[in-house]
């Protein structure tokens, strides 16, 4: 399950795709982009790792952090909603705007919510992908063993 070319591609491409995901996330709200798409793109980057290094190695690296990541995302979303209480109502958005060298920057609770969405999507999508990849790999191993046995019996 370790393809040498794929591993090379993984090494180069995964950080780039993660960067694209972050870009998409930051672009959201006013322009097409946002947490959900960013989460899916990031998950696809890690899926590349699964393909290149196998599900087991990926599970070792990321496995324990997936559900907590989704939990963190939900906490972030709930926090964003509760922070809105400061602005007068549940889920009321609060924006901070400031200027850096004439460039307007703004941060707000919708972004926090979006970040939460991104985390939940990454966590859940990867849990699902890892589960399926593991099952598929187990089936492949079994299939190979079965074919070997058939070969032996034929000899």
């Amino acid at each position: 399950m370790t393809e040498i070319y794929l591993r090379l591609v993984d090494k180069i491409l995964t950080p780039i795709i993660i960067l694209i995901a972050i870009f998409l996330f930051l672009r959201g709200h006013d322009l097409p982009g946002g947490g959900f798409i960013a989460g899916l793109v990031a998950a696809s980057a890690i899926e590349l790792t699964i393909l290149a290094r196998g599900a087991e190695a990926t599970r070792d690296r990321y496995g324990p952090w997936l559900i907590p990541l989704a939990g963190l995302g939900l906490v972030a979303a709930a926090t964003a909603a509760l922070l809105g209480l400061y602005g007068g109502g549940f889920f009321r958005s609060i924006w901070l705007e400031f200027y850096v060298f004439d460039d307007k920057l703004k941060f707000g609770t919708p972004q926090l919510f979006d970040l939460g969405v991104m985390f939940v999507v990454i966590g859940m999508a990867l849990t699902y992908l890892l589960r399926l990849s593991e099952a598929a790999e187990a089936t492949a191993v079994k299939q190979a063993a079965l074919e070997e046995r058939v070969e032996e019996s034929r000899l």
């Binding site: 324990p64 952090w65 559900i67 907590p68 939990g71 963190l72 939900l74 906490v75 709930a78």
Partner: peptide, 9 residues
């Protein structure tokens, strides 16, 4: 519920 998920590890 989210806090409960957060400590899953």
């Amino acid at each position: 519920g989210a806090l409960g998920m957060l400590i899953q590890s």
